[in-house]
């Protein structure tokens, strides 16, 4: 690295705000859509695994194995089918979220107290209605805890997608390395961290709004 090059050139940031904003938007999309898709897959899959317990171990094994495959390898596999597109980044990221989300959906459903489940059945809820109206709402805190982990790790993993040219803010990291210019690298890292923090804060807020009942654990006579 060039010795008289400062760590941060504020002028560069000022010159690139619009472009940085664009890449931030792309980064968010690449990071968060997989979490949404992951959730759409995990909720029904988790319900099935909760209902038929024998299904859970194989599902868990498969999703854990996928998680252990390096992202680079997954990108290379999917490039053959989806080319150098955003999908090629999002599909592996979606698969990664499953190893966090499926167990959290299953644990969330398991957190429903047995008397509550029994009472729901005894009141005359059918099986499907019981899951939707009673069990899933009660599972929300545990599921959101999983979503927070999945979202933060997904946002940070997006940058790796730059290896196939779809890395959101990861673009600035490769550029900075190529040009031996630290400002874009640091800017991208800070922005990625801020995105992760903001997403996490929003999810905490969402949980508070969705589960007013889980607060105020006071017992008054």
């Amino acid at each position: 690295m060039n010795d008289d090059e400062p760590l941060i050139r504020w002028q560069w940031i000022a010159d690139h705000t619009a472009e940085l904003a664009d890449y931030t938007g792309i980064h968010l999309r690449l990071g968060l859509l997989p979490v949404l898709f992951g959730l759409i897959i995990s909720v029904p899959l988790g319900i099935l695994c909760h209902r038929w317990r024998w299904l859970y171990p194989p599902v868990l094994t498969v999703s854990n194995i996928m998680y252990s495959v390096p992202s680079l390898a997954l990108f290379m596999i999917f490039v053959r089918y989806t080319g150098l597109t955003e999908q090629t980044v999002m599909i592996p990221l979606t698969l990664y979220t499953l190893s966090v989300l499926v167990p959290n959906v299953v644990d969330g459903l398991a957190s429903v107290p047995e008397p509550v489940r029994l009472a729901a059945t005894a009141m005359g809820f059918g099986a499907v209605r019981r899951v939707i109206q009673v069990e899933l709402p009660i599972a929300v805190p545990v599921v959101i805890a999983g979503v927070r982990v999945a979202a933060v790790s997904s946002i940070s993993l997006v940058a790796v997608g730059q290896l196939i040219g779809q890395g959101g803010l990861g673009y600035y990291i490769t550029r900075g390395l190529q040009l031996d210019f630290p400002t874009p690298i640091l800017t991208a890292i800070v922005l990625i961290m801020l995105l992760a923090l903001a997403t996490d804060a929003l999810l905490v807020l969402a949980q508070r709004l969705l589960t007013p009942w889980s607060r105020n654990k006071v017992t008054s006579a």
Partner: peptide, 10 residues
């Protein structure tokens, strides 16, 4: 039932 089994989210 014994532990009323109320729905905590309602």
């Amino acid at each position: 039932i014994q532990h009323a089994g109320l729905f905590p989210h309602r």
